[in-house]
């Protein structure tokens, strides 16, 4: 039997990338500045994480001009939602497995 942590995907499991997907999951789209401010990141740091997510096909990035100013909108894709669901299921499994382990330990100690 494999350990539940083996189901965690590197592209999604990283704390910031998981946060980006969590925000986008409930929204239609969010802009770069909103994500940067909400997650407390620098431009470069957020840009790198978005690049990883875009290359994995988890987000779609749309660069547009609004009122003659550049703006970057980010949207979660269907596979991004699936990856987030899978990650959350894996995290719940990690918790359940650790709790089962703790219960077994206390039973054998008693």
């Amino acid at each position: 039997m494999t350990h539940p942590t083996s189901r965690l995907q590197d592209d999604v499991h990283q704390r910031v990338r998981l946060g980006i997907l969590a925000i986008l999951n409930g929204a239609s789209r969010a802009d770069f500045a909103f994500l940067r401010q909400t997650l407390g990141l620098t431009d470069g740091n957020l840009g790198k994480h978005l690049q990883v997510l875009e290359e994995a096909g988890y987000v779609a990035i749309d660069k547009v001009f609004e009122n003659r100013r550049p703006r970057t909108w980010v949207k979660i894709t269907r596979s991004g939602r699936a990856a987030l669901d899978e990650e959350l299921a894996a995290l719940r499994e990690v918790i359940a497995s650790a709790e089962r382990g703790a219960t077994n330990e206390s039973l054998s100690a008693g």
């Binding site: 704390r15 998981l18 918790i95």
Partner: peptide
Amino acid sequence: AQESLREV
């Protein structure tokens, strides 16, 4: 895992 779920 618990902290990650809370943050999500």
